[in-house]
């Protein structure tokens, strides 16, 4: 392995990018394939895409040759907007599924360390803290405050940053109003269609614990079945947004 390739690999890992290290056996020239690189024409396109999606390393045998694909995938995580009862219930559920949980809420009456001792709590507006978190394709966003002033900016930001899951709490009527606001804010119909609302898989969940399980199940499905290998081109926003509009991509930020 080339030293520059190792440095490149480490840089991508630290930037929370999924990357596959592809090495012909019994040892040969190693190459890196990032999640988002164009795989068209790659003889191992299908195998590399599958390995990246599953987060699974292994050997593939093709045309009499063995190749080792070592996959490095960022840890998936959930950002919950709203330090509410559902978010409290989500702490042990997310931990059981192996997801990190970050809770964001500017309302200090809700965002108390006592209620969220077991997780990362940021008692500030999403506008203030989400850009620093580096929302990415391995981040899920669950907006559960019921307050558009807090939820909307975070939803738009997460969609623009390609979060693998965006879910929002609220009835269908609430979501219809949200839909109008988000379209006015510059999201496309396709963007808004991608929002999971009402949040959580439909299991008739009623209590906060049950809703947390329904949300977690939806997040897991979105992650495990997410499309790999044919993403949008780097730097191209999924939807046009005027500079300075809510959720707009900061200059120079990774896509």
């Amino acid at each position: 392995m080339d030293a520059r390739l190792l440095a490149d690999l480490n840089a991508r890992r630290h930037a929370r990018q999924a990357v596959a290290v592809v090495t012909p056996l019994p040892g040969g020239e190693t190459r890196l394939v990032g999640d988002g690189d164009d795989l068209a024409g790659d003889p191992l396109a299908v195998e590399i895409a599958a390995a990246l999606r599953a987060g699974r390393s292994g050997i593939v045998a093709k045309d009499g040759a063995e190749t080792f694909i070592n996959v490095h995938v960022p840890a998936p995580r959930i950002v919950a907007i709203g330090a509410v009862h559902i978010s409290q219930a989500l702490i042990p559920v997310a931990a059981a599924a192996g997801y990190d949980l970050i809770v964001v809420d500017p309302r200090t009456a809700f965002a108390t360390p006592e209620r969220f001792a077991a997780t990362t709590l940021l008692a500030d507006w999403p506008e203030a803290v989400l850009p620093g978190l580096g929302i990415d394709r391995y981040t899920a966003l669950a907006a559960v405050t019921h307050d558009p002033k807090i939820d909307d900016w975070a939803i738009v930001h997460a969609i623009r940053r390609d979060a693998f899951y965006v879910g929002a709490l609220g009835s269908r009527k609430t979501h219809a109003k949200r839909r109008e606001r988000l379209l006015s804010a510059g999201l496309t119909e396709a963007d808004v269609e991608g929002i999971h609302a009402p949040i959580g898989i439909d299991i008739g969940a009623a209590s906060p614990g049950e809703i947390a399980v329904a949300v977690m199940a939806e997040v897991i499905e979105a992650f495990r079945r997410r499309p790999i290998g044919a993403p949008r081109s780097p730097g191209a926003p999924r939807s046009p947004g005027a500079p300075g509009s809510i959720g707009s991509r900061p200059p120079g930020a990774p896509s």
């Binding site: 190792l6 440095a7 699974r56």
Partner: peptide, 25 residues
Amino acid sequence: MQIDATGTDVPGTDVPGTDVLGVAE
């Protein structure tokens, strides 16, 4: 083949706090 249950970085490669590839670099 070991399947990473959590989808995290190469499963079990590193003792927490020890990034082997970082050490190599």
